[in-house]
Amino acid sequence: MAERSEALQGWRLPVLVVLGVLLLAGPPLLTSYWVGLLTQAVILAILAMSLDLLLGYTGLPSLGHAAIFGVAAYGVAVLSTRYQLGFWTCVAGGILAGTLLSALLGLIVSHVRDVYFLMITLALGMVLWGLSYRWIPMTGGDNGLSGIPSLEAHAGLPFSGPIAFYYVALFVFAVSGALMAVLVRSPFGLTLCGIRESEPRMRSLGYNTWLHCYLSYVLAGAFASVSGVVWAYYNSFVSPTYLDLTASSELFLMVTLGGPATLIGPVVGAGVIVLLKNVISAYTARWLLILGIVYIVAILAAPKGLWNLRRGRS
């Protein structure tokens, strides 16, 4: 456990404790507006962590990851509004849609690296965005799909309201986060890090690097789908903006701003971006301009991310 104590050295442990207490005990004391923001942050944190598996641990920079999230959300929307299916069918359908899509796209992208991976995932993300935009009979086009039933009603839960939803989202977040934390510490996860550091060496050691990259892509897609399903229920509305390049680049920033290959970093990044976006949008419509500037300043000031600030390692 030497690695863990190093990961939490200095200021990180107190920050983590404060964050944990806030997430667990905060909502009953907050107004519904802030509970909403916290819910968004928690759901998007799952998505950011899933991208971290790819970008941080495997070293594959995906600029189309939001598209998987969006497809899962559309899965829930289509199944629940067009076909009126039950809760668990919708959940399973959404996760399956995103995961199967990743399994398919993974076949295309898993043998390219670096710049090529970035360009191809960006292009594929744009294809999916185009599909959601133009396949109007299924997706409603630019208007999106509304009327997704509320989680509590659909699942038949005995309680309701934003705080109840928040704790459901927090539970999904905790389970997903724990699974991903186990994953990156497993031999499989360490192999992914090895591929990130030196793929030729891993290959010469006998590892099937293509398969590892493929599985990493599919797993990241599966967790992104989980996030998409929860988001669909949170917002009860899906539209093509979920899949577009701006969404993917916001997500990319969550991971790189927070600190890649830490899992906790992207959670912090997701929180910071959700907070910034909502606070700034209250004052000005220039969110994209601010986002771009945050991008540039973040790279200049903290190129390894907030969670890696003042850390000795190179």
Binding site: P61, L63, V115, L118, T246, S249, F252, L253, T256, L288, L289, L291, G292, I293, V294, Y295, I296, I299
Partner: peptide, 10 residues
């Protein structure tokens, strides 16, 4: 590349 992404948004 991230820097160019930031500029694209700006």
């Amino acid at each position: 590349m991230m820097m160019t992404m930031g500029f694209a948004l700006v």
